[in-house]
């Protein structure tokens, strides 16, 4: 499968986005290859979630016609052929999109079928995904009765159940306890072997432990892009990820 698929799974060029008169995203370009895990860092309100919404087709960029802006998922243009392109995306928004009145099994099966899986494949994927996300014991439970950590895991499960090529996770480890965070980080690493993962986060430790590359956003612009190792030794101070991050975002203001 990995031989036949194109190497670059996600390619976004010149994205801009305004809400009213406020320019939220300025000319942002991103590229992601298969097997990469990209961490999107930034302060609150830097435009991380807006960027992810655009990459998943929930929000259209401004000026699609003029500025040469494009988003390609596995070579398919998301803006012109949204239905085809979205079949390759798994997305976990900031708030997990859960139907609280459904059971975990029903909900995950719905999510799989919604992404175009056949019933047989969906039930096989359900078993596998529940095992990967540690949801074996709660399959028949109603989602609304689960704890926040379990709900977050169901949210991750719906994003990966159809084995998408591009997985977009908006703050995946919020509300989890330390051991769950470790499990989820392992899962993300594992997912990064076969697909591309983009995750936004505030936690530098998360970036350090799971991401191959980092992009830092500030006020809607990318101000730094490079590998995690490069950021850690940015400016000649190896091993100081946190200081480097604060220095980078501080000097730009």
């Amino acid at each position: 499968m990995s031989n036949a698929a194109p190497e670059t799974t996600l390619c976004a060029r010149h994205l801009t986005r305004r809400f009213g008169n406020r320019q939220v995203i300025h000319d942002l370009s991103l590229e992601l290859k298969r097997g990469e895990v990209l961490g999107l860092l930034g302060h609150n309100g830097a435009g991380k979630s807006t960027t992810l919404q655009m990459l998943t087709g929930c929000l259209l960029p401004n000026g699609v016609e003029r500025s040469g802006c494009s988003i390609e998922i596995c070579g398919i243009d998301l803006l012109r052929q949204p239905v085809l392109a979205k079949a390759h995306i798994g997305y976990l928004p900031e708030t997990p999109p859960l139907y609280r009145e459904l059971s975990v099994n029903d909900y995950l099966t719905f999510a799989a079928r919604l992404r175009g899986m056949q019933p047989g494949a969906a039930s096989a994927a359900l078993v596998q995904t529940r095992q990967r996300c540690g949801l074996e014991a709660v399959g028949k439970e109603i989602i609304g009765t689960l704890s926040k950590g379990y709900q977050q895991r169901v949210g991750i499960a719906q994003a990966i159940i159809h084995s998408p090529d591009v997985i977009v996770l908006d703050e995946p480890t919020v509300g989890l306890d330390p051991s769950q965070i470790r499990d989820i980080r392992n899962l993300i690493r594992e997912l990064g072997d076969r697909s591309s993962v983009i995750l936004s986060t505030h936690l530098l430790g998360e970036v350090e432990s799971v991401c191959d590359c980092v992009q830092i956003m500030q006020e809607g612009k990318l101000i730094y892009g490079g590998t995690t190792a490069a950021l850690a030794s940015y400016g000649g101070e190896p091993g100081h990820l946190e200081e480097n991050f604060i220095r980078l975002t501080g000097t730009q203001q």
Binding site: P82, V83, Y91, T95, Y99, L114, R115
Partner: peptide
Amino acid sequence: RNQTFALLLSAPLS
């Protein structure tokens, strides 16, 4: 309101 709309918007359906 429950933010589940993102699931449908990001799914491959028109």
